Structures are given as C-alpha cells and as structure tokens.
Simulated assay, not measured.
Amino acid sequence: MMYGETFTAWRAGAAGPWHGYTHHPFVQGLGDGSLPREAYLRYMVQDYVFLIHFSRAWALAVTKAETVEEMRFAARTLHALLNEEIALHIATCAAEGLDEETLFAAEELPQNIAYTRYVLDAGHSGDFLDLLAALAPCVLGYGEIGLRLAGAKTGTPYAGWIETYAGEGYQQMCHETGRLLDGAIDRRLGASPQTAPRWQALQHRFETATRLEIDFWGMALPQ
C-alpha cells in the first residue's frame, strides 16, 4: 500500500487505465530521454495552466472539508502548488524564453479543459470525497511515476522533473494525501467503505480522472 488503503483499492479497480497513465509513451520518453523537447515544453505550458485550475480545486477543498485538519491540509497543498510546484514550470519555461505572463496567457487546449473542469465539477457538484477522488490520480500518480523513473537511473535530460516528483518532499506529501484520503473515507463511509453504496461512484470518479490523465499526456505528443 504505497499511499494508503483507499488509493490502493481505487488503483486496483482502475488497473488498465492506471497502467496506461503511468506507463504512457510520454512518461516513458521522460524516463529514457527520448521525449522531444518541443513536446516537453508543450506539456509544461499546459501543465502550468492545469496547476492554476488545480490550485482552485484545492481552494475549493477548504470549503468542502468537514474538519479543521482537512482544511489545513487543503490550504497547505494550495500553498505548495502556487509557490513551489509552479516554480518548476516557470524556471523551465523561462530558460526557453517563455515568461510567466506568457504561460498564464497560453491558450488552454481541449484536453486540459476537459480534465480541469471535470475535477472542479466533481467538487462543486459533490462533496469532499468526490473532489479527492478526482484529485488523487494526479497527486499520487505523479508520485508513483517519479519513483519508478528515478529507480531506472537513465541519463535523461528530464532528470529535474523526475527528481521533483521522486524527491522526499513530494513523496511525503503523497503519503500525507493517502492518510488524508483514508481518514476522510473512514469518517464518511465507515470502517468497511467498499461495501458502502457510494464506493462504486467514487471508484468511477477516480477512473475517469485517470483516463483524462492519459489524454493529458497525449495532448503534448506530436500528432
């Protein structure tokens, strides 16, 4: 159970899409260095836009939370997104002549719109669990991908990206997110959540977000 019981169960329930997401050709290209630089930069620009919306989703999580601990976690995650993870995108793109103003003004591609609006709609139309189920594939999937690629130890030019998500700070955040998810599930669905009427709907949210992650990787690759 890398990041908790709930994540492990949802991951197993979406095994096919999850493998397609975490072993996507884009991901493999990051790991072995074969990903074209233009594809990486296209992804970085769109991921900056994505993280702006993702930050809004975590801000929404503060209002959907039922406990002070949940509120604090969502607020800490929002801070990390806006002031730490986005910094990687700004620095990488700045080296290629793209400043943050350009990133913020970038045209949002349809795959990005589909994914980010799905996550936000999950939060607006549902509760804290709906939002977490839609957020989890990105948060925890990147942690899993980072660890796997770091373990391969290939001399890729994308080592900085890999180190970000394989690093101690991000991995700690993934473990904390897994504990938050387990606690939120236990609080709302009880000690046997997989027998609860809502479980399958939450599983479906997780799988849908995972499929949208696949499309997000594909968005950056040459057509």
Score class of each variant (00 low, 15 high):
Gly97Leu: 06
Thr116His: 00
Val139Pro: 01
Glu85Met: 10
Thr116Met: 05
Phe104Leu: 15
Pro110Lys: 03
Glu84Met: 08
Asp121Lys: 07
Thr102Val: 15
Phe128Thr: 09
Arg76Glu: 14
Glu100Thr: 13
Asn83His: 15
Ala75Cys: 10
Pro137His: 03
Glu96Phe: 06
Leu120Ile: 14
Phe73Gly: 01
Ala87Lys: 07
Asn112Pro: 10
Ala87Asn: 10
Ala122Pro: 02
Thr77Arg: 06
Phe128Ile: 13
Gly123Glu: 01
Met71Val: 14
Leu82Ile: 12
Glu84Asn: 10
Gly97Lys: 01
Phe73Met: 13
Ala133Gly: 06
Ala133Val: 14
Gly126Asn: 01
Arg72Lys: 08
Leu120Tyr: 05
Asp130Tyr: 03
Leu109Ser: 03
Leu88Lys: 03
Arg72Asp: 12
Glu84Ser: 15
Leu82Arg: 04
Val139Thr: 10
Arg117Phe: 09
Leu140Trp: 00
Phe104Thr: 11
Tyr115Thr: 10
Leu78Asn: 06
Leu98Gly: 00
Leu103Arg: 00
His79Ser: 12
Leu131Met: 11
Asp127Val: 13
Glu70Asn: 05
Arg117Tyr: 04
Gly126Gln: 01
Ala87Cys: 09
Leu129Cys: 08
Glu107Gln: 11
Arg76Ile: 14
Ala114Thr: 09
Ala95Asn: 04
Ala136Leu: 13
Glu96Cys: 11
Ala94Phe: 12
Ala80Thr: 11
Ala75Gly: 09
Ala114Phe: 12
Ala74Gly: 08
Glu84Thr: 14
Ala114Glu: 14
Ala122Asn: 02
Glu101Phe: 10
Gly97Ala: 06
Leu81Ser: 06
His79Asp: 15
Val139Arg: 01
Leu129Asp: 00
Val139Gly: 03
Leu129Met: 10
Leu135Ala: 07
Phe73Asp: 00
Tyr115Leu: 15
Ala133Pro: 02
Thr116Ile: 07
Leu132Asp: 03
Phe104Asp: 08
Tyr115Ala: 08
Cys138Met: 06
Tyr118Glu: 09
Ala74Phe: 07
Leu81His: 05
Leu81Ala: 05
Leu140Thr: 10
Leu88Met: 09
Leu109Trp: 04
Cys138Val: 11
Ala95Gln: 11
Ile113Arg: 05
Asp121Pro: 02
Pro110Glu: 02
Arg72Met: 13
Ile90Ser: 00
Leu131Arg: 00
Glu84Gly: 12
Ala106Arg: 04
Arg72Tyr: 07
Cys93Phe: 02
His89Ser: 07
Arg117Thr: 15
Pro137Ser: 13
Glu107Val: 15
Glu84Trp: 09
Tyr115Lys: 07
Leu82Phe: 09
Leu98Pro: 00
Asp130Met: 09
Ala75Thr: 09
Ala95Trp: 04
Thr116Asn: 02
Leu135Ser: 04
Thr116Phe: 00
Arg72Gln: 12
Leu81Cys: 08
Gln111Phe: 03
Ala106Glu: 07
Glu101Met: 12
Ile113Thr: 14
Ile86Trp: 01
Glu108His: 01
Gly97Thr: 10
Pro137Ala: 15
Ser125Ile: 13
Ala94Pro: 03
Asp99Met: 06
Gly126Met: 03
Arg76His: 13
Thr116Asp: 02
Ala105Val: 03
Glu84Gln: 14
Leu109Arg: 10
Ala106Lys: 06
